[in-house]
Simulated assay, not measured.
Amino acid sequence: MSTGTVDGSSESAVAVSELAAEKALALMDSEGMDRDIGGLRLFVQQGGCAGLSYGMRFDDEPEDDDTITVHHGLRVFVDPASLDYIGGSRLEYEDGLQAAGFHVENPNVVSECGCGESFRT
Rank of each mutant, 00 (worst) to 15 (best):
Ala24Tyr: 03
Glu11Thr: 07
Ser10Tyr: 10
Gly39Asp: 05
Asp66Ala: 15
Gly39Met: 04
Thr67Lys: 13
Ser111Gly: 12
Ile68Trp: 15
Ile37Trp: 03
Val109Arg: 06
Pro107Glu: 14
His72Glu: 04
Val70Met: 04
Gly114Ile: 10
Phe102Thr: 04
Thr3Trp: 05
Asp84Pro: 02
Gly96Met: 00
Ile86His: 11
Lys23Ala: 08
Glu31Ser: 00
Leu25Gln: 04
Asp95Val: 02
Glu22Arg: 09
Thr67Asp: 13
Asp36Met: 01
Ile68Cys: 14
Cys49Arg: 15
Arg35Tyr: 01
His71Phe: 00
Gly88Cys: 12
Cys49Glu: 12
Gly8Tyr: 07
Ala26Leu: 05
Gly101Thr: 05
Ser30Pro: 04
Gly73Ala: 05
Arg35Ser: 03
Ala24Leu: 08
Leu91Asp: 09
Val78Tyr: 06
Ile86Gly: 13
Ser111Met: 13
Phe43Tyr: 15
Leu42Pro: 13
Cys113Leu: 01
Val104Met: 11
Thr121His: 14
Thr121Val: 09
Met56Pro: 05
Gly114Trp: 08
Ser89His: 12
Arg75Asp: 00
Cys49Asp: 11
Gly96Asn: 00
His72Cys: 03
Gly101Leu: 07
Arg41Met: 12
Ser118Ile: 00
Val78Phe: 06
Met33Ile: 12
Gly8Lys: 06
Arg75Ala: 01
Val70Tyr: 01
Met1Tyr: 07
Ser17Leu: 01
Gln45Val: 01
Ala50Tyr: 02
Cys113Gly: 02
Glu11Ser: 09
Arg35Gln: 03
Phe119Ile: 08
Glu22Leu: 03
Glu112Asn: 09
Ser10Ala: 14
Ser82Tyr: 03
Val104Glu: 03
Phe102Cys: 06
Asp60Leu: 14
Ala13Asp: 15
Val44Glu: 08
Thr69Glu: 09
Arg90Met: 11
Gly39His: 09
Val109Leu: 12
Thr121Tyr: 09
Glu94Asn: 09
Pro80Phe: 12
Arg75Pro: 00
Asp29Glu: 10
Asn108Thr: 11
Lys23Asn: 09
Met1Glu: 04
